[in-house]
């Protein structure tokens, strides 16, 4: 995909580079970590400043903070039930962290930390450990009955049990792959079409006119990516809630 020395370099945007000079270099403090800290700082600032006034008629920031709170609160109580309220802080932090990570990545020069499978799998692994621990704590040994549905013939056990175990273990994998793949695909597409704009723009007289096409496509893509950024955070949160529901009400 080379064009006269200029290549479409869509993947270098995911490379990690140390920041903060020699200190960051020695402790492996990459721009990904920096963006995570930035996301955490922004979320904290939103909640702290947003709720500082506690106005009856909320201002802009307070309305934003309240609607985020209520959105996740409804999600948790709807999916898990009233017992799920104690998981609200966890799901809220998870949702906001992923949402801010996805949205921050859409800014120019910013880095999308959710486009690394190490990050998304780390988050999914936390969810997986949590649902397993919760299920074990609430149901004890009955938890293992999850892998063999009642009423199934016993001679089918050697087939059903491994399948159920693999299906259960595939939860964190599918959670992490979904988020990671969506973010990577979106950012690669943005980069590829942005490179088309530059390559086509240099094609003599007609170049700038042809280059308008990928530019228009990129504008549409940015809007689409905004939707995906929100949707993927939502999907991650709702699946966490569904898994928590399964852990709380074992079937």
């Amino acid at each position: 995909m080379a064009a006269e020395g200029k290549t479409i370099d869509a993947l270098s945007q995911f490379e990690l580079t140390p920041v903060l000079g020699i200190v960051g270099n020695s402790v492996g403090f990459s721009q990904s970590t920096a963006h995570m800290l930035l996301a955490v700082g922004l979320i904290t600032a939103l909640m702290m400043y947003g709720m500082a006034h506690r106005a009856v008629v909320p201002g802009r920031l307070q309305a934003l903070a309240e609607s985020a709170y209520e959105f996740v609160h409804n999600l948790v109580t709807e999916q898990v039930g009233d017992e799920g309220r104690r998981f609200f802080p966890f799901v809220f932090s998870l949702f906001m962290f992923i949402l801010f990570g996805n949205l921050l990545g859409l800014f120019p020069y910013a880095f999308t930390f959710t486009s690394h499978i190490a990050v998304t799998f780390g988050l999914a692994a936390i969810v997986f450990v949590l649902i397993t621990v919760v299920a074990l704590a609430i149901h004890g040994r009955k938890f293992f009955g999850y892998f063999f549905p009642e009423g199934a013939p016993v001679w089918l056990a050697p087939i059903i049990v491994p399948v159920e175990i693999v299906s259960y273990l595939s939860r964190p994998v599918s959670l992490s792959i979904r988020l990671f793949a969506n973010m990577v695909a979106g950012h690669v597409m943005l980069k590829v079409f942005a490179t088309f704009v530059i390559l086509l723009g240099g094609l003599g007289v007609v170049g700038p006119f042809v280059a308008v096409l990928p530019l228009a496509l990129n504008i549409a893509l940015v809007g689409f990516e905004l939707l995906v950024a929100f949707l993927q955070a939502y999907v991650f949160a709702i699946l966490t809630c569904i898994y928590l529901h399964d852990a709380v009400h074992l079937h």
Binding site: V166, S167, S170, S174, L231, L239
Partner: peptide, 19 residues
Amino acid sequence: LPGGSWGIGFRAGVEVVSA
């Protein structure tokens, strides 16, 4: 879950691949 036919298709694909 939200998402049109594309979303559902992608989800199904991810589920199979991860398993």
